[in-house]
Simulated scan of single mutants.
Amino acid sequence: MTGELSGVDLARQALNAARETAKKNGTTQTKKPKRRTTTVVRRDGREPLGLGAAIGMMMTERGMAAPAVVGNVLADFDAILAAAVPELAGRVQAVAFDAETGRLDVVPDLPAAGTQLRWSAPRLIAAANEKVPGANVRALNVLVPVPVEAGPATAAAESARSSTAPAAPMRPTDLPEGDREAIAAHRAP
């Protein structure tokens, strides 16, 4: 058994010989290498996160935290609008926010306010994302203006408009044939 060495034994002997030679030459490492304690910041935006931050980001990406954000965007819309476009304060209402797509639906009171709102959309989106952290508003959808409900001032304006007489009274010859026949039939009995 002492005659021939196998491949593993030869490798061990070669390793021991190399170690002894390295000790004689003074090229051995006596210290362990230091661990890096600095934080690596990658240029592509990926950087190490703590567990809590990673879970919070994952929940936000999957829409698990969206309902609270939706309520905050809708509840704070008046303050957001006043900060971004103060001249439209009180003239626009937020009606819906879709957290998955980042679309905020708003309704102006007049078409002119809708046009001004479309022009001011980038400022409004930036203000919404600043005022409501985690909202991630990406688009503004301006809906068709809703007619104003009749209040005391609107009712007075409507009655003033309806009390004015038409420019010229309608003559029976201006009516369509079917209407003239219906009026004649009504007067007959």
Rank of each mutant, 00 (worst) to 15 (best):
S6M: 02
R118P: 00
P33H: 07
A156S: 04
V142F: 08
A96Q: 09
I80Y: 01
L81H: 00
R180C: 08
R35S: 07
P67T: 01
F77T: 10
R62A: 11
P122L: 01
E100F: 02
A53L: 14
S159F: 05
R103L: 03
A128F: 00
D174R: 11
A65V: 10
K24R: 15
R46L: 10
V73W: 00
A22Q: 05
R91N: 05
R35N: 04
V92M: 01
V95D: 01
A14G: 12
A139S: 14
D174V: 06
D44C: 02
R46H: 11
A182W: 12
M170C: 11
E181D: 09
E177T: 01
E149L: 02
G45T: 03
A184Y: 14
D98A: 13
A82I: 01
R35K: 10
R19L: 13
R187F: 13
K23I: 03
V146F: 02
N72P: 05
R46S: 05
D9V: 05
I55N: 03
M170F: 14
M59N: 09
S162C: 00
A139P: 10
E130R: 13
P48S: 12
L81G: 00
S162H: 01
T173D: 14
A165D: 12
I55K: 06
S159Q: 10
A14C: 10
A75V: 05
R123W: 06
A157K: 15
R171C: 04
E4L: 06
D44I: 01
A99V: 11
A155M: 13
R161N: 06
A185W: 03
Q116F: 09
A14V: 11
R171E: 12
Q13H: 11
A128S: 01
L88P: 00
A22W: 03
F77C: 14
L124S: 05
G56D: 12
P133T: 13
E177Q: 02
P111I: 06
A155G: 05
I125T: 00
V95E: 01
A113D: 14
A155Y: 06
A83E: 08
P169K: 06
N16D: 12
R103F: 09
G90E: 09
L10A: 07
P152M: 00
K32Y: 08
P145G: 09
V144I: 04
